[in-house]
């Protein structure tokens, strides 16, 4: 039987999301598809799979992503689904502990991919906010009446959303910082 669950995880909480999916799998709720804040589970053997998430460099339809995903599939890893650049993988728990990365450097590369995306999104939204605030200022300068102009509102909304990304990616930046420090003394 299929169960669809709607749940929101931020870009910075992918490890929490992973943990949740693994807890579901341990209970016999096996993830079979994903969408925007949407998870489709099927009932199955509890603890059969271990799930991992990865933010790829490109969309899953890109040639580089296709090559990567098929490489993982050759290693006994299933590609369960994807949402934008996020890809959901799983492997049978009977094959042992499943991780996508086994050293500090490759974990750093993955965390950096996430913080870079977050910075780009923050920057784009901040630019939009500035543009709208500019529009609002010139509107007020040329109109003596008319409070119902939307520019100020858009500016405020974009400012809030822009500020949200650095906030929600804090866990990732914290993990990244710890790894960078670790790399000073260890491989």
């Amino acid at each position: 039987m299929k169960h669809t669950v709607h749940k929101v995880f931020s870009i910075g909480a992918f490890e929490k999301e992973e943990q949740w999916l693994n807890q579901m799998a341990a209970k016999g709720m096996i993830l079979t598809d994903v969408g925007f804040c949407k998870y489709v589970f099927e009932e199955g053997l509890p603890g059969k799979y271990i799930y991992r998430l990865e933010l790829l460099n490109n969309l899953p339809s890109h040639a580089e992503s296709i090559a990567y995903i098929s490489f993982l599939e050759d290693m006994g890893i299933d590609h369960v689904g994807s949402y934008l650049r996020w890809v959901y993988f799983r492997r049978k728990a009977s094959e042992g502990n499943f991780d996508l990365f086994s050293d500090i450097d490759s974990r750093i590369v993955h965390y950096k991919r996430i913080t870079t995306l977050s910075s780009v999104l923050t920057l784009v939204l901040a630019i939009l906010a500035v543009v709208y605030f500019g529009q609002a200022v010139s509107f007020f300068a040329t109109h003596t009446s008319g409070f119902f102009q939307p520019f100020l509102g858009y500016g405020i909304i974009f400012t809030i959303v822009a500020a949200l990304f650095p906030l929600v990616t804090r866990p990732v930046r914290k993990s990244l910082k710890a790894l960078l420090k670790e790399r000073w003394i260890r491989e």
Binding site: M75, G76, F101, S102, S106
Partner: peptide, 27 residues
């Protein structure tokens, strides 16, 4: 091939080092 490398590295290191697939691909 990839899977062979993973197995060989485990064997060489006496199972101390297990290469994860993403790390292996990047390398």
């Amino acid at each position: 091939h990839g899977y062979g490398i993973m197995q060989n590295v485990s064997k060489l290191s006496g199972d101390r080092l297990t290469l994860a697939a993403g790390t292996l691909y990047g390398a």
